[in-house]
Computed example of a mutant assay.
Amino acid sequence: MINRQFWLIIVTIFFALVLALMPLPISFEPFRPDWVLLVLMYWSLAVPHRLNIGSAWLTGLVIDLATGSPLGVHSLTYAITIYITASNYQKLRNFSIWQQGLLVAVFLALHHLLQFWLHHFLLEVYFAPQFLWPAATGAICWPWLFLLLRKYRRHFRIR
């Protein structure tokens, strides 16, 4: 039973990875939500004993390899974001979906600012305000993603 639940969580992370790698028109690319991090945040809130910082780090490593970004950038930022989410999951569960969406926006902004800082340190990239658009779109997508994954979790009885 444990292996089945683990694989069901991996399936959702895989679909999020597909959404993250799917090509979009150039005009929509700056607005792409970080689907993988949103799914990881949901699972760290819903079943924190199943998804931990190590899982987030490995998922970030897969994203680094798939996107060609410097190795470890997504891993570190995912691990930090999931650490903050998982360490406060009891508080975050008590908020409404809309309040969670605002906190998710803050966590996504933290993720993107950390990612910018690491890219600036490694690649000399300079800040542009468009860099934070995924935090806003991720917060907008959070309620629907939350409800979809909750229905999935309840249907397959993932505990």
Rank of each mutant, 00 (worst) to 15 (best):
W57P: 10
L61M: 06
S44K: 05
I63F: 12
F127E: 08
W35F: 07
P33I: 04
I63D: 10
I80Q: 01
T12N: 06
L58H: 02
G68D: 01
R154M: 05
R32D: 04
Q130P: 02
L110A: 07
R153I: 04
F116T: 09
Q130T: 11
K91I: 13
N3Y: 14
I53W: 10
Y89V: 01
I26G: 09
F31C: 04
Y42S: 05
N52A: 14
R4G: 05
A135I: 10
F107K: 07
N52Q: 15
R150C: 00
R150A: 00
S96D: 03
F131V: 15
V73L: 12
L58P: 01
I2P: 11
G54L: 08
P143S: 04
L113P: 03
R50Q: 06
I158F: 02
R93G: 01
Y83V: 05
W133D: 01
G60R: 05
A86R: 13
R157A: 10
A128V: 13
I2H: 08
L110N: 07
A136K: 06
L76M: 04
R4C: 03
Q100V: 00
W7D: 03
I10V: 15
I80L: 11
M41H: 03
W7T: 08
A128R: 14
V18C: 15
Y152A: 04
R150T: 00
V125G: 11
V73F: 06
V39K: 08
L145M: 00
F146E: 00
L148M: 01
L51G: 10
K151Y: 03
V39W: 08
L71Y: 05
S96K: 00
T59W: 10
A109E: 02
C141S: 14
D34I: 08
L8I: 10
G60F: 02
V39C: 12
Y83Q: 11
Q99F: 00
G54A: 08
V11S: 11
F95R: 01
T81C: 04
Y42W: 02
W7L: 12
T59Q: 08
F127P: 03
W117P: 08
